[in-house]
Design a protein around this nucleic acid. Structure first.
Length: 801
DNA sequence: CATTCCCGCCACCGG
DNA sequence: CCGGTGGCGGGAATG
């Protein structure tokens, strides 16, 4: 048994000694302070040093004391043994550092570096098993992607921003914040709570777990799984890693205790029954993940001292995740190298072409380059059909998106199948794609087609089939998809997997706040299990203000329709074989949202960026909202004001969070009213036209009538709720809806005592505080995450190390 | 004793 | 059937 240890130790020593020799790969792990003799890259070395230093400095110090004595004198030669191979020497964290040292943080896009596991294991002298652990979490962050058997592509941190954004969004969509709260609350109550309610809650919240399925959040641009990572069963570690990261991104203090994380990760699926062993295992895994994340400097270990003792926890030290839009801009600007952008755009066009060959993309003039891409894509597509394997990254992604829509499928059966079959995760992607596609759908010139828009919104799930194929064409969504990547939209896509669980919540929230129905929705959501009581109560309180809800199935259904979330969730969950059709339907919803973004990203950015912002933006918003618009008829002048400033953000938000759906409509309305009202009678129509024109699907002059259906349908459900309130009120409501969670949280508003706050949070009906909170939310900037702030942290004391 | 987490058995799966 | 993957949990270091 021990032998291996010795060997390892020895080997390490050897490495150290002969570093000079080993030029090929190894970067000296140990030499943190003493910069290793062989610098692969100046930067990389520095980075390594820095990174290595922080987490393990102490360890190092310890070692030094022990080993240095010998080493100092360079006597070591003979007795390597003394150096303790000690466990730390072999820690995953250290190993990870070594691993990371081998590759540049930001590899030039042009040349990809490949990772061969065999080589790595040799060079690092570790068992393969360990490398898998590292690679898996790196993959969860899209820092690498698997190509084939033992081969991975190294992306470095280029994708990190997108990934984090996406993860954050997903985390928000889910109700992680609430879940965290629940758990904490429970703790207070002393686990075994007296109230039967508790148990019930739990059951309700987490109870149904089937959905929990774990979905892996993917990024559009990243060439994931060529070889198919989707094997679906795997990924648990990857998924865990993503969820873990989500927790950080979502929680306000950005500190997550292992205990809570473990509970949530377990809970999602089956919950409760905290099996002791299960819990223990989960924690073990979390440590593994945490070690890698620490090596990436994304988190660091800390201790939180709550009421009862101090518990191990981790603090997020990675980059802050921007809301969205802004990110997009930044990215686009800053990273010229990022290849994804160009790709994405082209794909879109190409998609559109495929769909509507006749149409040219003349409108796209701006992006002549895109056309090129489109052609390329088309070619690729052919190739793919014949040879699916072809790893064209871009093309692949694009295609994948296509599968989502049935229509698309019909058009490109081969592709679709491949994609579907090949990728389980597709659901997510699909959603994204759908989102993209949906906008495109809009382009359809025919008025009848316009309904397509409506479809996505309300009908999406079931109806999509009924929906005109037009939508499908949107497969181009792939294009939009790509767009997403660049900006931050990618996150939007997030909806996917998490969506199923999460989405429901948003709906519920929205609904709840606005309408009575919401409760019903909530319940539904709850069924899945996540939401326990927390959401309910708060929601309820809010709702209560307005009235006792009626929970009719109808309402719920409506909600579902309106909110894509539910359908998506369901669909998303599993797609294995059938998925295709279902997925397709799901996809639609998101697409609508996505589309708008796309616009922004492309031309808009440049165009609207400033002066026109208001105008253009409004248009864009409209577009976005258009789908949504239907949902909420009311337009608030107030919103407008608010929106304008934040409009950038707003669009993003909409896309990102399911919750935002409600909000989106509002915004759009306002925009429409103010800016584009004259041009378009109803928002949806204007939006459509706008979008279409932008997209190039329809000539500038042509206008498509907005689909009445859409408006009515979506609107109907919510409008009712909203309508009852006064105009001004409505506005607020709209806001509220948007930040349903925030409201809940805000209600407690003054968090004097942590516990007290908590209590209020859950028990207090929205009282007086509600409005203020709303207003706060209205700023839009904060959005979802706000909730976190209020979350009762109780006396949290964080101690580093 | 508690926390951290290494090690590696062994089930899967994809070829 | 084989070799790559990677879930999982015992139990060894460490604190």
């Amino acid at each position: 048994l021990k032998t291996p240890l010795k060997q390892a130790a020895t080997s390490q020593l050897v490495l150290t000694e002969r570093q000079p020799d080993c030029q090929p790969l190894t970067t000296p792990p140990k030499p943190k302070e003493t910069p290793p003799a062989d610098p692969w890259t100046p930067t990389s070395n520095l980075k390594m040093l820095i990174s290595a230093a922080s987490p393990e400095i102490r360890n190092r110090e310890q070692r030094r004391q022990l080993s240095d004595s010998s080493s100092e004198e360079h006597l070591l030669g003979d007795e390597y043994e003394k150096s303790q191979p000690s466990r730390k020497e072999k820690s995953l964290g250290l190993l990870c550092h070594k691993f990371l040292a081998r590759y540049p943080d930001y590899p030039s896009p042009s040349q990809k570096s490949y990772i061969c596991l065999d080589e790595v294991t040799e060079e690092l002298h570790v068992e393969r098993r360990r490398i898998y652990d590292i690679v898996n979490v790196l993959e969860s962050l899209h820092m690498v992607s698997r190509l084939a058997r033992n081969r991975y592509v190294w992306h470095g941190r280029h994708n990190l921003p997108h990934t984090l954004q996406a993860l954050k969004k997903v985390g928000e969509d889910n109700k992680y914040i609430q879940q965290i709260q629940m758990i904490k609350r429970r703790e207070y109550e002393h686990e075994f709570d007296a109230d039967g309610e508790r148990n019930e809650e739990m059951a309700g919240c987490f109870g149904s777990s089937e959905q929990s399925e774990m979905s892996f959040v993917e990024l559009p641009g990243v060439e994931f799984r060529a070889a198919s990572v989707n094997g679906r069963k795997y990924k648990s570690l990857r998924v865990m890693s993503q969820k873990f990261v989500m927790l950080f991104l979502v929680s306000t203090p950005q500190i997550v205790s292992l205990e809570v994380a473990a509970k949530i990760l377990i809970g999602e699926d089956q919950l409760e029954d905290l099996d002791k062993s299960k819990f223990k295992t989960k924690i073990r895994r979390l440590y593994d993940i945490a070690n890698v994340l620490s090596s990436l400097k994304l988190i660091k270990k800390v201790h939180v001292t709550e009421e009862r003792g101090r518990k191990p926890a981790f603090k997020w030290t990675g980059p802050e995740v921007l809301p969205n839009t802004q990110d997009i801009k930044l990215e686009a600007t800053s990273t010229a190298c990022s290849p994804p952008i160009p790709e994405s755009i082209p794909s879109k066009e190409q998609c559109s072409k495929a769909l509507f060959p006749s149409k040219g993309k003349q409108s796209f003039t701006r992006h002549s380059s895109l056309i090129k891409l489109v052609k390329t894509i088309e070619n690729d597509r052919r190739k793919i059909q014949s040879a699916p394997t072809s790893p064209v990254k871009i093309s692949a992604s694009t295609y994948q998106s296509l599968p989502v829509f049935p229509n698309t499928i019909a058009q490109f059966p081969a592709i679709t199948k491949h994609q579907l079959e090949g990728q389980s995760k597709t659901a997510e992607e699909m959603q994204m794609k759908c989102a993209l596609s949906s906008p495109e759908v809009v382009p359809k010139p025919e008025p009848s087609q316009q309904p397509a828009l409506s479809q996505p919104l309300g009908v999406c799930p079931a109806s999509h089939s009924s929906v005109s194929p037009v939508i499908l064409p949107h497969p181009q969504s792939g294009v939009s998809y790509a767009i997403c990547l660049h900006p931050s939209q990618a996150p939007t896509v997030t909806t996917y997997s998490p969506g199923f669980m999460l989405q429901p919540l948003p709906c519920a929230n929205v609904t709840g706040i606005k309408s009575h129905n919401s409760k019903v929705l909530n319940k539904i959501t709850t069924e899945e299990g996540d939401t326990q009581r927390g959401p309910d109560e708060p929601t309820r309180s809010l709702a209560a203000e307005e009235r006792p809800e009626t929970k009719s199935e109808t309402s719920s259904q409506r909600c579902l329709k309106r909110s894509q979330a539910l359908p998506e969730n369901n669909l998303i969950k599993r797609r294995k074989s059938d998925e295709e059709s279902l997925d397709t339907s799901l996809t639609f919803f998101p697409s609508s949202y996505l589309i708008p973004l796309t616009h922004c990203t492309h031309g808009n950015k440049a165009e609207c960026s400033n002066k026109e912002k208001a105008g253009v933006c409004s248009l864009q918003h409209t577009a976005y909202s258009s789908p949504i618009t239907g949902v909420i008829p009311m337009a608030a002048s107030e919103l407008k004001t608010v929106n304008i400033p934040a409009f950038h953000i707003t669009p993003l938000n909409i896309m990102l969070s399911p919750n935002s759906i409600a909000a989106a409509p509002v915004l759009s309305n306002s925009c429409l009213n103010s800016s584009s009202t004259s041009s378009a009678p109803n928002p949806s129509s204007s939006a459509l036209n706008f979008m279409l024109q932008h997209i190039g699907l329809i000539p500038a002059g042509v206008q498509v009538a907005a689909n009445p259906v859409l408006q009515q349908v979506p609107a109907s459900s919510q409008s009712e709720n909203i309508s009852h309130s006064s105009g001004s009120t409505n506005v607020q409501e709209g806001k509220v809806i948007t930040f349903s969670f925030s409201l809940q949280l805000s209600a407690p508003k003054e968090p004097q005592e942590p516990q007290a706050v908590t209590e209020n949070f859950f028990r207090t009906p929205g009282g007086p505080n509600t409005e203020p909170s709303l207003s706060a939310s209205s700023d839009g900037t904060q959005r979802t995450s706000q909730g976190t702030l209020y979350i009762p942290q109780r006396k949290l004391e964080v101690s580093e190390d």
